[in-house]
Each structure stands twice: as C-alpha cells, then as structure tokens.
Nucleic acid binder design. Structure first.
Lengths: 235, 235
DNA sequence: CAACAAATTTCGGTATACCAAAATTTTGAC
DNA sequence: GTCAAAATTTTGGTATACCGAAATTTGTTG
C-alpha cells in the first residue's frame, strides 16, 4: 500500500470514510482538522480532496469548506444512465477483444461470489462485485474507458452499497453476473448488452428506493450540526 | 474571465498553449519556471497541472516533471471510441429531453458555421464546432454526461484541430452537423446515432492520418531537447 | 579519450506562514 | 430581551521555506 503517493493514500482513507458513512453527506471536510487528524500537512490533504472532487464524492464550494456530496435522485439517475452506457460499451468491446484468460478470470470472480455468498458480509461481497466490473473494463482493452468506468463506479459506490445490503439475494448478485460472463464466452455483443442492461436497471430501481428513504430521513433531522459525529444538545 | 479560480485560469492558459502547440507533446512542464513566468506561486500552478492531468493533456510522472501527453494512435482511437459512445448517448437523450429552444440554439450554431465558413480561420471555426458539441451535451440534460463529454472533447481537441485544418471542407463541417440537428428535430434517436457515428468515424480516420504523420516527424528529431522551444546546439 | 564516481544542481513533494474572505461570537443600542 | 453591528475566530487560497530524490555536471582514473 506504501507504493501509492501520499495524496492518493489520504484520498483512499477519506473515500473509505465517505463510502462507509463515517463522513455523511453534507458534512464539511475542513483542511486543517483532517490534516492534523491524519498527521499530514494541508498540502497533500488538499490534493486528496481534489481527487475525491473529480470522483464526485466531494463537492467543492469556492472559498468555503468542501462538503461530502449529497447526490440528488436525478443526479444518481443520470450517473446510472452513464454507467449503463459505459458498461455496455465495455461489454461489447470485451466480446471482441477479451483474451480467454480474461474471460476465465471474470468467471473465477463470479465463482468466488457464489461460493462465499453465505459466509461473507455485505462489504466484502460488494468489493468482489467492484472487482468484477473493474475486470470487465480491463477486458475491453480501452484504458480511458476503464478510467471513466471506475469514476462512475466510485460515484455510485455508496448508493450501490446501501442498495446491496437491503436487497441481498443470491439470484441478483450471482445470476446476473453469470449471464454477463456467459454472453462474453459466446462473444455475443447483443446478449451482453442485454445482460448488463437488466443488471443495472434493477440496480437503478434499488438505488432510487434507498436514496428516497435516506433523503426522507435526512430532512427529518435537517438541522443537525453537520461537522460533528454526535448531535450536540442545545443549551 | 476573472470569476474563475486562479488555478482554473492558469489551467486555461496552459491548455491553450498545449492545444495551440506552443507546448508540444513530450515537453516537460516545470513548476518553478512556469509559475515565475505567469507571476504566480507554485501552489496554484501545481493545482492547474493536476486539472490538466485529469483532462489527459498532461501526464504526471511520480517525482519527475510532468510532460505534455504524447497520445499514441491506440490511445486516440480508444478516446474516439469513448467519445462516440458518449455523444451517441447524448444525442439519444437529447431527442427525448431537449427543449425546442435548445434545438433552435443548435440549429443557430450550424447556421453560424455555414455563414462564416469562408471568412473565419480554422481556430475560430473549431471553437464553434466545440460549442456545438457542448450544446448537444447540454440538451441531453444529464450533467455528469456533459462533464465526461467535455473531458474527451478536450483530450481530443488538439488532434481534432490538427485534423480539421488539413481536411477543411464545407460538406464535412456543415452537412454532418446539419444531419445531427435534423435528426434531433425529428426526435429520431436512431437517425441521430447514425449521424453522429458517421461524423466521428470520418473524424477518426482524419485524426489517425494526422497523428501518424506527426509521429513520423517526431521520431525524425527525437533527440531534441524537449524543454526548450529551440534546439540548442551541442558544444 | 572513455567511463565511472562524486559533488552539485534541479525539481517535485511536503510543511509552514500569511492573507483575505466567511462565519461566528460578542457587544451595544433600543 | 431582541436585533444589528462590530470585533474575533475560523477557514480556504496563496506564497514561501525546506527536504530528499533525480538528474546533471564535474572530476578522476584506467
């Protein structure tokens, strides 16, 4: 892990905190506080914040504290729309260009999913899911494509995660991925687009449900102090 | 123009220099030199470099000077592939969602293109072209989509520009755009995908030609000092 | 003259200092 | 007690200082 640059490491840490919900949407990320907390100076932390901003996890406001992004339903829907197109293209290109070894690697990941389904927790399952989609982008042999694919995956990470822990069932998680690999084995571009479409359409619905719920909760305690973990009592 | 942040302004300046060829592919961008030259400190210039790096115009190398990206043919082909998919999606969504006013605005741009074709230079024509594609992304009413569309447009800006000044003819520049607007007027998603496909397929060929040529030239004087405008004499 | 090694310079990465704009708190008037 | 205005603190933006790693130059040796 030490082979990454310091800003990248800091970004990883912050990303985890955001995605796991330690830093909740709307909270401000103060440069000094977080820099001190992590034992680094403001400079690399600042850079880390920019990284997460381009990933869409943090929202920069000129001359104000950056805040953890509060994705609207429309925004999430838009992002799913893009992810859908990007992943369909990846699948299509992978049908043309993937090596047999790469297809086997994808199949391996799905097998792992199936094997471990009942023994691991949602976070671990989710990380496997992420690795599957990353491997698919790799198999398309188009680096910039893999790059934006990664960007949108991480933008939707938290939403997907929240959706995943609610709608956890073997059929969705395993079968849909199996369909994708099967289509890839057959080098069937039409089938893979369809499989990915089904996969993400379901995802979109799940996400919308979860976010709608979260927004409802958020407006319930809208006046909480947003830079403290605990809600302080009013004196 | 003063309403932008300082790093953004610096990035704009550098971007222009790169796209116009003042900073040629392979040249190193030293923080101190450029900061002094532009009368700012290293901090905002550093940030500007990161911005351009995410746009793909600059390549960061750990512990080394960043260099102006030297896109390979494969890389450009990959980027065109992505741009194609992104713009097709934009067109499709625009067919569903564009307001009549937005369609009119697009048509207006094409009209301007046609009117001014014989009187303005390649750079100006190109900027109009860029504004057309940006407006199309806007009409799709999907902000993250417009964002990555912009990213890939700027990554391909220089290549497209080089291609444009070589293959300049009214039929390509005007007719193709007209087809796109017509399809949009008809709200015909299939037609607009086709029109965009034709447009960018031609573009891809042109770019490949130009870049092949540029690479050939570059290897001819491969040993030039890459951080000076003029080739210094060896003593 | 060539080649390798040591000294020097250059340069990116990080930390720190300073400033101006925002936000917050305090204070004073009504 | 309330509200507004002023003083204070907080915070992001920028400049500068410092460090260690790379690259370059210089010097030495065969």
């Amino acid at each position: 892990m030490a082979d990454q640059t310091l800003p990248a490491q800091i970004a990883n840490q912050l990303r985890r905190d955001i995605l796991r919900g330690v830093l909740r949407p709307g909270m401000s990320i103060k440069e000094r506080d977080n820099a001190d907390k992590m034992g680094v100076s403001r400079t690399p932390l600042r850079e880390a914040i920019r990284i997460l901003a381009t990933e869409g996890l943090i929202e920069l406001r000129p001359a104000r504290s950056p805040i953890v992004s509060i994705p609207s339903i429309k925004q999430i829907a838009d992002e799913v729309e893009v992810l859908l197109a990007v992943e369909k293209l990846s699948g299509e290109l992978a049908c043309e260009r993937a090596t047999d070894a790469e297809v086997d690697a994808l199949a391996e990941i799905v097998q792992t999913m199936s094997d471990k389904f009942d023994t691991i927790d949602a976070v671990e399952m989710f990380e496997i899911d992420m690795s599957f989609h990353a491997a698919l982008a790799q198999a398309a042999h188009n680096e910039p494509l893999a790059e934006i694919h990664g960007t949108f995956l991480s933008r939707l990470w938290r939403s997907r995660f929240l959706a995943a822990i609610q709608r956890r069932n073997r059929e969705r998680v395993v079968d849909h991925h199996t369909h994708i690999v099967d289509a890839l084995r057959d080098r069937d571009a039409v089938a893979i687009r369809a499989a990915i479409g089904v996969h993400l359409d379901h995802l979109a619905e799940d996400i919308i449900d979860v976010i709608t719920q979260e927004i409802a909760e958020a407006s319930a305690d809208a006046d909480r102090k947003d830079d403290h973990e605990t809600t302080p009592l009013r004196t």
